[in-house]
């Protein structure tokens, strides 16, 4: 096909989008909905990954000791924990119950001290003696935990690993649901785009019959419809990235309190914007192309002849 024919056909395809603007808007809308869901799943996944790596980088286990231990026993438990395999002794510290209270008051505010004093009696605290241990290798988590549990004087433990497990479960649930939703919405998008192309095609039945009569190849007839499908896909991709950027910004602002508790920095949108854009463009172009090619080819095979077409 000559370059000037390609230019002419691209112009025709773009003109079709405008002439069938209501259907074009509907197609772009449905495509955007499916892309948006996919994009939000990606954004969520990216942030969960970051939270997990923050948690994993800490590798911290809080070990609470029995209440009735003497200072010597506490010291002994502390030393035993430090000497365990997979425990980094340099990053393992002892936190006395009074230090633990100080920590709590630091978070809650010093004005709460009077309530603690009134409740537990001045100078007393029910917070346990604690050892904050750091693991070297998380792969050996289970063995290390059972070694800790076997140390005499250890009452219980608390690990951020539990949070990681919950987050992983939520992430995989969202990913699975997301994939099915994307498959479903992609099919719907395909049908909607195919319908837009079909309407354009029936509007242009006359043109198609004339094209065939004057010797246009099927490729020539198909071209503007492909341009139409692909352009709708590209418009939907670009708009979705814009909308997702705004939604992400709003979501981060709304979730600010939770984010500060988890003490992690949300992944900036620019970090995954290009991946999302590429995925959207690929999805949009493929959906547009498949829908238009299937529709027009079906039509050209069955009808589209010169005298009986109209």
């Amino acid at each position: 096909m000559k370059a000037r024919s390609v230019r002419y056909l691209i112009g025709e395809g773009l003109k079709n989008i405008w002439l069938n603007r209501m259907m074009s808007i509907a197609s772009v809308g449905v495509l955007m909905a499916s892309m948006l869901l996919m994009g939000l799943a990606i954004a969520f996944s990216e942030n969960v990954d970051r939270i997990m790596s923050t948690i994993e980088s800490q590798n911290v286990v809080m070990i609470y000791l029995d209440d009735d231990l003497s200072d010597e026993q506490v010291q002994s438990v502390y030393e035993q924990i430090r000497s365990l395999d997979n425990i980094n002794p340099d990053e393992t510290i002892y936190i006395s119950s009074s230090q633990a209270l100080e920590g709590v008051l630091e978070t809650m505010g010093p004005e709460y001290e009077q309530y603690f004093d009134a409740y537990f009696g001045e100078g007393n605290t029910i917070l346990p003696e604690t050892v904050r241990a750091s693991m070297i290798d998380l792969e050996q988590y289970d063995q290390t935990i059972s070694a800790i549990e076997n140390v005499d004087g250890v009452d219980s433990y608390d690990s951020s690993r539990d949070l990681a497990v919950i987050l992983t479960t939520v992430r995989s649930a969202i990913n699975t649901a997301g994939i099915w939703m994307i498959v479903l919405l992609s099919l719907i998008s395909l049908v909607i785009i195919a319908n837009t192309v079909r309407i354009t095609m029936f509007n242009r039945k006359l043109e198609i019959s004339i094209m065939k009569a004057v010797g246009a190849t099927n490729g020539f007839i198909r071209f503007p419809f492909m341009v139409e499908g692909i352009t709708l896909g590209i418009i939907a991709s670009l708009l979705t990235v814009g909308v997702e950027y705004l939604l992400y910004k709003v979501a981060i602002r709304a979730l600010e309190p939770i984010i500060s508790i988890l003490s992690f920095n949300p992944v900036p949108f620019s970090n995954f914007m290009w991946i999302i854009l590429l995925i959207f463009l690929a999805l949009g172009i493929i959906a547009g192309l498949i829908a238009s090619v299937i529709t027009i080819s079906k039509y050209l095979r069955r009808e589209g002849s010169e005298f009986s077409a109209l």
């Binding site: 096909m1 000559k2 000037r4 024919s5 002419y8 002439l19 006359l206 043109e207 019959s209 004339i210 094209m211 004057v214 010797g215 246009a216 020539f220 005298f307 109209l310």
Partner: peptide
């Protein structure tokens, strides 16, 4: 054609030019 088959949204010039676009 008996029923002319002119494209209503195109003017006379564009209708006549149409087959020429097909051959590039």
């Amino acid at each position: 054609f008996q029923d002319f088959r002119l494209i209503p949204t195109m003017n006379v010039f564009e209708n006549v030019a149409f087959p020429m676009h097909v051959v590039g």
